[in-house]
Design a protein around this nucleic acid. Structure first.
Lengths: 143, 143
DNA sequence: TTGCATATGAAAATCACTTGCAACTGTAAA
DNA sequence: TTTACAGTTGCAAGTGATTTTCATATGCAA
């Protein structure tokens, strides 16, 4: 009955390293976040986590995702008024271009802009903790 | 008893031009928005509007600010999770710094960043229609 | 194995809005 | 001006998302 579960070990290690207690609920939540290819909200996360641990409650789903966020294992996005959505933090930081006609999302990254942001903030006595940059665009007609 | 109230006339005209019915509540709300130097949320707006018209209800504050927004007289901003904040649309385009500790909002404007945004978009075949840039910051401790 | 700080579930509470509804009021027409 | 009525408003109840309360259960260090 000791079939080794490599993924579970990894998840447990990640939780432990983050200084979080290892509970079945947290493993379920982190597993779901790790397997997610989209940006689920807490209700969806809770639904998926129940597949691994049927007893997980909504309250715990909220508390756990907040803990994972605080630990830097996941990232929270609050798109316009809607409920918060999360994603695991694997890839590098990037911003988004939103195609107004098709709804397509294109990722981009600009050190120059990041640098300017820090400079502007510094000039006003601030330090940038994080930012949000979205370009709402349309395809250019003539080349 | 017909002391002419220039500001009130202006507000009434603005409402009328926007195709909105002129009511005391709407005048109060638009006046408060016009006098605001900050970015109040609806609760604060309601508090201030009551100084002009004590009978204004919260529901009306919400309905009115939504109407003013739809009419293009004010602009809504929903910063990360917090309640929506509004500002009159007179001034030039600018972006926002949000103080994570105090909730304060500081405005800034950078031609350099705007230029870079256009360049990046152009490189990807897009044209920027509008954008949204928010810097979530903390006051710098040491100089 | 134990001690206890933490985590959890269930339900109630909170927050930011939104909506139903009956009473009221601009507004435009008569 | 009076009238007619669609648009507005206040109040209260309703929502949906998220947080908190509290009693019970559980990691984990000793």
């Amino acid at each position: 009955m000791t079939k080794p579960d490599r993924q579970r070990e990894k998840l447990e290690r990640a939780l432990h390293t983050a200084g979080l207690r290892v509970t079945t609920q947290r493993i379920a939540m982190l597993r779901v976040m790790t397997e997610a290819e989209d940006h689920p909200d807490v209700a969806e996360l809770h639904r998926r986590a129940q597949a691994h641990d049927p007893a997980i409650s909504v309250a715990t789903a909220y508390r756990t995702i907040a803990a994972l966020d605080a630990a830097g294992l996941v990232q929270r996005h609050s798109f316009d008024g809607a409920s918060a959505r999360y994603e695991r933090v694997d890839k590098l930081h990037h911003d988004h271009i939103v195609d107004l006609d098709t709804g397509d999302i294109v990722e981009f990254q600009s050190d120059a802009i990041e640098r300017l942001q820090s400079e502007i903030a510094a000039k006003l006595g601030y330090e940038v903790v994080h930012h949000r940059l979205e370009l709402y665009c349309r395809k250019r007609s003539e080349p």
